[in-house]
């Protein structure tokens, strides 16, 4: 059985799914990720599905489960790179991927994770913009 590699980049685990996964491979990935989150102490998981030409209910469920598991383990999961045809099909299939954060690409996914944990990723700039945010909000 093939295995999907999990890469650690800084404080983020990056999973780039490049193959047409069998169900077993998908379940294995779920287990691998949970283990890696704990062993690395990472607080962000990015799952890049740019290369996937379909997402069926099984893979959809796997993504949801990973998101839930990582939440329990204090990590944010962002699914990035979903193709338009895949998104259209998921809508038709009736799969809403509730509870999953998504972003257009890896870069945006990292922004989303950084934004979710402003304390840990504060790069000085964040503080200023936060202040702006307050003023807009209380307009």
């Amino acid at each position: 059985m093939e295995r999907v590699p999990v890469l650690k980049i800084g404080d983020i685990l990056l999973v780039s799914i490049q193959l047409d996964m069998s169900d077993q491979t998908a379940v294995q990935l779920q287990d691998d990720l949970a283990e890696r989150i704990v062993s690395t102490g990472c607080h962000g998981v990015i799952i890049d599905i740019t290369a996937l030409d379909i997402v069926d209910s099984f893979v959809g469920r796997m993504l949801s489960t990973i998101a839930s598991i990582s939440k329990v383990l204090d990590a944010e999961t962002v699914v990035v790179g979903m193709r338009p045809a895949v998104a259209i099909t998921l809508v038709e299939l009736g799969l809403s991927l509730n509870g999953i954060r998504t972003a257009l690409n890896v870069e945006r996914g990292m922004e989303l994770i950084a934004a979710a944990r402003p304390d840990e990723y504060d790069d000085g700039e964040g503080g200023d913009e936060d202040a702006d945010d307050e003023t807009t909000d209380t307009r």
Binding site: L112, A115, A116, E129, D132, D133, T136, D137
Partner: peptide
């Protein structure tokens, strides 16, 4: 977009 991504969050 003019505000931080934490706003979007």
């Amino acid at each position: 977009t003019g505000v931080t991504t934490s706003r979007r969050q």
